Simulated assay, not measured.
Amino acid sequence: MSVSFLRNLILLCVGIFVFPVTTGYFGISGREPVLIMTLGEHQRPMSNKIRSYAAPSVCDMLKLHGKQKRMCKRGKGVPETLIDATKLSLSECQAKFQNERWNCSMGIYRQNILRKSFKETSFLYSITSAGLVHAFARACSLQRLETCTCDESKNLTHRKTWGWGGCGDNIKFGLKFTRRFLGRARRSGKDVRAELDQHNINLGLKIVKDHVRTTCKCHGVSGSCTTKTCWRQLLPFSAIGKILKDKYERAVRVASFKNQATGRSRLVKFQKNSNALNVSFGISPKKGDLIYLENSPSFCKKTRYSPGTYGRHCIKDSSCDIVCCGRGYNIQNVVVKKSCECRVIWCCYVKCKQCNVTEEVHTCK
């Protein structure tokens, strides 16, 4: 089926997330996790653990479709980059939603959300497609892939960039690989959900592509610019995540309108107080819109889509009212160790003591 890679990209980032099992979903249309690995007692970074396996083994562990598996095995560095993409998208998703009711929760909750058409589902599709492009474009410039190298854009000096320490991120390769890997909706126009998902996937690709920057560096005697080398750089993924989070906040609800003459359906902006399904002149969403079909649940109580917010940490005077859903919060004093009495040791490092500090922790009732 179409867009067969992004059902979700979930992977634990060690040191940020503390869970015994890490799960990744590499198929938009698939329901099975592509990767389930126990981190173990040492909590080693997943990228290191994955790299300890032979590439074919990693590709077999990923529950990929035939074409995807062939692409995974074909080139050196591809399996590792796929894993890096999962870490990138998941960590950014959880960072952007850590102080909200839906906090990019994993496991069965994520699987259930992906079966729906909520705003959260749309965000997952866009952030994960963006993560794929970003990871593969960056892998080219870092020489991790055999099939690509620095950015090959015209009018940029590349032969000299290696010598000066600059190498452009190959956004062209990243987009090409991702589009081939994900495929396209075969039933576009007939399958409303496929069209919706494809739109949000394309949004993730568009955001990365539209925010590539050209960086230049001058070289010459006494700072003169007798030689200038330029290369293209991706926007930091945290900035990509912020743009997509803003799109999420302004997401557009759509409905399906079926043309009775052709039998084809298209998405139009949902109109309140009217039946959008019967509005033949409905306004189509823009390419830059994050779109969804169904209103989201509140995520306040435990349901099939969320573990609820009971016991969740929140920030007083900032997120507690929202996260705790008006139920209030408990306050607990905890003792933590922090660096204190720091001083600079000549010449090159700072020495600090470890002090016990009492802090307030707020958890939702």
Score class of each variant (00 low, 15 high):
3 V>P: 01
9 L>Q: 02
10 I>E: 07
10 I>T: 11
14 V>I: 12
15 G>D: 09
17 F>S: 14
17 F>R: 13
24 G>P: 01
25 Y>A: 03
35 L>E: 03
40 G>M: 07
48 N>M: 12
51 R>P: 00
52 S>E: 15
53 Y>N: 06
61 M>L: 15
77 G>E: 04
84 D>T: 10
88 L>E: 04
91 S>E: 10
92 E>Y: 04
97 F>C: 03
97 F>K: 03
104 C>V: 06
108 I>V: 15
108 I>K: 14
109 Y>T: 05
110 R>N: 14
114 L>C: 08
118 F>L: 04
143 Q>T: 09
157 T>P: 10
165 G>A: 11
174 G>E: 02
175 L>A: 07
190 K>L: 09
196 L>T: 03
201 I>L: 13
201 I>Y: 02
219 H>A: 07
225 C>D: 10
227 T>G: 00
235 L>T: 08
238 S>K: 12
252 V>T: 12
255 A>G: 10
258 K>P: 05
260 Q>N: 09
263 G>L: 09
265 S>P: 00
273 N>L: 13
285 P>L: 02
289 D>Q: 05
298 S>A: 15
300 C>E: 01
302 K>E: 13
302 K>Y: 05
316 K>I: 06
335 V>E: 03
352 C>L: 10
355 C>N: 09
356 N>W: 06
357 V>C: 09
358 T>P: 01
361 V>F: 04
362 H>G: 04
